[in-house]
Each structure stands twice: as C-alpha cells, then as structure tokens.
Design a protein around this nucleic acid. Structure first.
Lengths: 336, 336
DNA sequence: TTGAAAGCGATACCAA
DNA sequence: TTGGTATCGCTTTCAA
C-alpha cells in the first residue's frame, strides 16, 4: 500500500502558526476580522505545509457541495456534449462545479446514477434527455432540484426544457416543398421515442397541408444512427421507390443516408436532396454541407444550468423560449 | 429559500428501529453479525425513512472517495470523448465513479481543475493530453496518483501513456507512397504542439526514405481543426501547387481539406487522395470514407483507468503497448 | 480579536 | 451480539 502524500489539516496549520483552528478558518473564508500578525503567520504556515482545505469536510459541514450533477445518456454524442458545454459555460464563475455521469442509454443505469449523485449530496441535477420517465424524474425532484432537457415537466423543484420537435419537422418539410419536392422519403427515428414520433407526425401533417398524398412506402425505419440511415436508403432503393428528397430524422441518419447514396453513385443534391435534424457541429463540414433543422442544444444546456441555480436558491425561474431554426446549406436542390 | 427534502441519518434510522447507530452501520456494510430481529427492524426503518447513506460523510471517514477525477481538455471533441468511454468501461463494477472536469484547453484552467479534484479528495486522476507540462504533472503526482495520456512520464505515482506519433506518420506516408504518390502535401497541426512536430518529422523522413525530394512549398500550416484544413487547401490551390495526395495532420483537418476540394470541384480520391490521422468515429461515414491512422483512444482510456486503479492500490503496473494502425478506406487512389 | 467546543453523518474500536 | 463514543476535517456559535 503506497502511502498518500500527507495533507495538512486546519489543526496542523493552526498549530504551526500558533493560533486556533477557528482563526485559520476565519482567514480562509474571510468570515471575520483577524489581526494582521496572525494572518501573516497563518498564511506562512499554509504555504509551508502546502495546505488545501478538504472539500469533503467543508461540504459535509455546510450541507452544500457546490456541485451540480449532470446525467447524460452518452458522453460521446455531439448532441449531448454541446449541451455539456452550455452547462459548463453557465457554471463558470458561480462557484459550482459540474459532476458528469453517464447513463449509457439504459434507464436502470440512469436511475443508479441519479441515486449516486443524490448520495453525493450534489446541490441539484441536470438530466439531458435519456430514458427516465417524467414521473420518475418528478419523484427524484422531491428529493433534489432537477432540470431536465427533452422532458415535459413543471413542478415545484423540477423543470423541463423542450423544443417543439413537431414544429421542427414541419419547417424541414416546408422547406423541401417550397423547393419543389413532392416525393419525399422519411427515415424515422428510434421506435417508441417521443421525438421520433413528433417528427413523423410533422412529416405527415406537412404533406397533408401541401395536398401531397402520404405514401407509407416512403417511410422507413431508422435508429438515429448512421447505420440506420444506410440501411434505410438501401431498402428504399432496392424497392425501386421514386423520390427526389430524403428527410432524415436526425443528422447522424442523414450522414448514413448520404453515404449509401454515394455508394450507388447517386449525387447529393443533384439527384437526391437530403435534409437532416439537429445541426451537429460536423454538419457544416460534410460534403455537401447539410441543410438541417438546428436544435439550440448549447443554449439549452446553458439555460438548464442557469435555471437549476435559481431552483437551488429557491428563486422563481422564467425559462426563455428557445426556437428551432432552419439552416440552409447545400444538400437541398431547388427543383423549380 | 426552499428547504431540501429532509434526508434521514443513521441516527434517525437507529432511533426509529430502536437500536444504536453502530448496529445500523453494521447492517449497512455487512461488517458484523447482527440478530435477525434487529436486522428486520432496521431494514424496515430504512425503507420507511427512505434513508440513503451520505457519501460525503462516508468518504470523509474512510479517507477514500471511491472517485477518480478525469481532466479532459474538451468535452466535445470525439477524440477525447472516446477515451472517456474507455475510462468508464474500465470503471464499471469497480465501485469507482468518474468525476469529469474540463480544462477548455487552457493550462491555467487545467491546473485549477486538478487542484479542485485534489481538494475533493478523489483517489486518483486521469489526465487526457492537454497543455500541462510533464513537470507540472509530476509535481501533482507527489500528492495523488496520476495517469496521463499523451505525456511521457514514469515516476512513482505517475504514468504516461503515449502513441508513437512519428511512426504513425511514417505509416501514413508509406501507404501513400506505395500507392504511387510522389507529390504529397502536408497540412501541419498546431504550431508548437508535440504531436504535430512528430508527425511532420515522420512526413519528412518518409519522403527521404523513399528518395523523394522534400518541397517546403507543399507543407502548409493547419490548426487541427476543420477551418485550418480549408484554409490550407485554398492556399495550396491558389499557389498552383501540384500534388496528387494530401496528408492531413488529423481527421478534423482532413474533413476541412475535403470540403475545400469539393468546393473547387476537385474529386476525392479521383483527382486528389486524402489521408487523415486519428480515425474519429465519423471517419467511417464521411464521403468518401476516410483512409487514416487509427489511434486506439478508447483502449488508451481503458488502460489509463485500469493502471490508475493499480497505482491507487499501490500495485505495480505493466502498461500494454498500444499500436497505431493504418485503416484503409476509400479516400486514397492507387496510381499504379 | 480570539479560542474552546459542538456538530455535520458515518464508522470502528472498546467494552459489556 | 450490541451500544457508547471518539474520530475524519471543517465551520460556527458562544464566551472570554
């Protein structure tokens, strides 16, 4: 067993400086006036011993860990890491540090992680989407303030931040239709996923609103991942479906679709147009740069963290509305 | 001020069950035999009060937080998030939880974060690359066990895990040369960055080894980001340089280069071949899928965490060597 | 201005 | 088998 480098305590500092621990604490926190002589002695002892306060002990005493827990389904997906960035941005200068844990897309693991965060006595939790139900979240919120993105909820200590996925899908479709597309294929998201359903609904309603007949043959299942996009396009092509555009349920799916098209020598956007959903950072750099619906996830993270801080302080929160936005790049061709 | 939902303590549980706190603790940790009657009473009280042990208090008492700190320069870059995944994978089932903090590529902030982790009494730290110097890391390692990727170091409580960047560059160049390329442009990485230098050296030496004259005009500065790749290609093209292939210092740079080529109507790989470095997850899905040098970053994360656990336990560590690998996809054309 | 001492919540030693 | 109690490191009354 290697011995840890000894770390000094207030007691030792106090002893070295010839004062009481209380005085050391006062100096550390500036919580009361202390004579200059003792201050100097203490500061010297601190430097001498290379003393750092034990945050564990501080938190235990104060009841506040100055930490907010963040549950993300996934530390890799840019969709979530952008939110992570937003959260960090909001926390800078507040004295709160983020503690990030991952639920790996498994509801049971997500529950475990939330329990872990609570056991660590974090001051509040930000949940980024994931598989927990609204009622589970509401129940955790009775123990600790929670802000969750991608969830509809509004309770005493819980707040949800959502985007109108249905509206986003309508915007994407409207753009395609305005550009003259009529035969539009849709690669759906994960089965049973709320956002996936809303986007499909938006697809169908936009068609109806434009007087275009809905053709179930043009809707094919995806999984929000690249491979789902590849499979979906292969299916469409092997069934000899005719279409001038593809609406992919998210950008990852669009990347996969684009690759499948490339493999068959079908050009984007000359032969087939593609529109995505999310606006991941990479979408500006793929070829051609992807036209898509931007979800302001960075801002969502920022707002979530800010709101959580308000919740923690018991202040009222007003969540600014965050709108989806059509980002026109180069993957959609105008047919008119 | 909202009041937090009251959380029970061992004391309250003990009182409710009519036993002593010591007995409750014994049941919680299975550290001694307890009569069945009391066990039942305590378990019922725990359920009743919805009691969860306070990890802060446990850690303070035991001196072990069962937490390992992770310093990453960036929570967004897939290069690092893959390592994060590797670390998490290694920690599953060990009882240790990862605490992730980000230094945002700024050495001063990285120092702050390390100090924060130490103050929280994490049991060890994994540093993913970043801007701290080897001697800074070694100095922190006197206070706490550290494993750092992308750093050369080997000390009592510190361990570095690196890949041979020079060798990787040689492999990339060898592939290009074997495919018949002679005029090969190089888009360099960040100035002053160690890996960037090693890769440039590999480029130059490979040329020499193949008897191809080094042409400084074909080397242009990049910054490891997409926009650097775009700028670099534009520069090359505006100077009317002739080249059949581009070796980009990393995949991000390659994506940018590919886009700049696309903008000018130059086809990849028909007109110009492109090879990257890193093998980011997206590289399988860009068009054309990118030929690149794979850095096993997931494995590096896993090995780093495993080694750290050994270090923490005071055991000796043998770091398995992790090799770079050429991943042949479709962005390089054979000229022979 | 300063120090003594209680207490945050959990654990483990020492008695019984 | 069980309970009392000191202890981890720090903060904060309460007195002096």
């Amino acid at each position: 067993m290697t011995e840890n480098a000894p770390t000094a305590t207030v007691h030792e500092v106090a002893h070295a400086a010839g004062v009481s621990p209380a005085t050391v604490s006062r100096i550390l926190n500036g919580s009361a006036r202390v004579s200059d002589a003792k201050r100097r002695a203490v500061e010297q002892a601190i430097a001498q011993l290379n003393y750092r306060p034990n945050l564990l002990a501080q938190s235990l005493k104060s009841g506040r860990a100055m930490t907010i827990g963040i549950l993300t389904p996934d530390v890799v997906s840019p969709f979530f890491t952008e939110s992570l960035r937003g959260i960090e941005a909001a926390l800078v200068g507040t004295g709160y540090a983020p503690l990030i844990v991952s639920g790996h897309w498994r509801p049971d693991e997500e529950s475990n992680r939330v329990e872990l965060l609570i056991a660590r006595r974090v001051d509040g939790i930000v949940i980024l989407s994931g598989g927990l139900t609204e009622s589970q979240i509401a129940s955790y919120a009775q123990r600790i303030p929670i802000v969750a993105t991608g969830h509809q909820l509004r309770a005493n200590r819980a707040l949800g931040i959502t985007f109108d996925q249905y509206q986003g899908a309508r915007m994407a479709m409207q753009h395609l239709i305005e550009m003259g597309h009529q035969r539009i294929a849709f690669i759906a998201g994960l089965v049973g996923h709320g956002d996936a359903k809303a986007r499909l609904q938006g697809y169908e309603d936009a068609l109806a609103a434009a007087g275009i007949a809905f053709d179930p043959q043009l809707v094919v299942q995806g999984n929000f991942l690249e491979n789902g996009g590849i499979l979906a396009v292969n299916l469409l092509l092997e069934a000899h479906q005719q279409f001038s555009a593809i609406f992919a349920a998210n950008d990852h799916t669009a990347y996969g679709a684009r690759l499948a098209l490339y493999r068959r020598g079908i050009r984007v956007p000359e032969d087939v147009s593609v529109i995505g959903f999310d606006d991941l950072p990479a979408s500006s750099y793929v070829t051609p740069p992807l036209t898509t619906i931007r979800q302001p996830v960075f801002e969502a993270g920022r707002v979530a963290a800010q709101s959580l801080l308000h919740l923690i302080r018991g202040e009222s929160v007003a969540v600014p509305s965050l709108a989806l936005e059509l980002i026109v790049r180069e993957s959609v061709k105008c047919l008119r």
